[in-house]
Amino acid sequence: MSNEHRSESPRPFRPDIVAFFCNWCTYTAADLAGTSRMAYAPNVRIIRLMCSGRIDPQFVLAAFRQGADGVLIGGCHPGDCHYQEGNYKALRRYKLLRRLLKSMGIEEERLRLEWISASEGEKVKRVINEMTEELRRLGPLRLAPKPQARRTRLVPVAGGVP
């Protein structure tokens, strides 16, 4: 999947969401939502990390470049992070990332952060459904196509460098 080459389909737009979930809370909650058979929109790819503080902003931008219409970050509630302050770090990065996205012509709403504890399976469902609605309203993310780095030699080198 890629945001550059996706053809328009006649079916209603089904946004792709990449979700980075903390192992200790939101991921467990998503699991709970799954085992208790709560229905949430099926268009989410969940990536588990040990803490929301591990989410490198590069992951978020790479997700957008590789086809995500939205990125969801889920972490432990303030004060509950297993590594003390990881979620606050995630919060600050998220705030700054939203500003960056806006300057780059991408709607800030495409990036969302939610605190979801392990018992809040219902909240996982609600947030994902809300976000899906929001992204439907925004439509597919259209990034400027990025030229690939060229990696083919035009001249075979005989004997290497002098």
Partner: peptide
């Protein structure tokens, strides 16, 4: 992505929750 790395570093050291 150098900018994302810069962003990450600056957000990390900001002393506020």
């Amino acid at each position: 992505d150098q900018g994302a790395k810069v962003l990450s570093a600056l957000a990390s050291i900001l002393d506020s929750n």
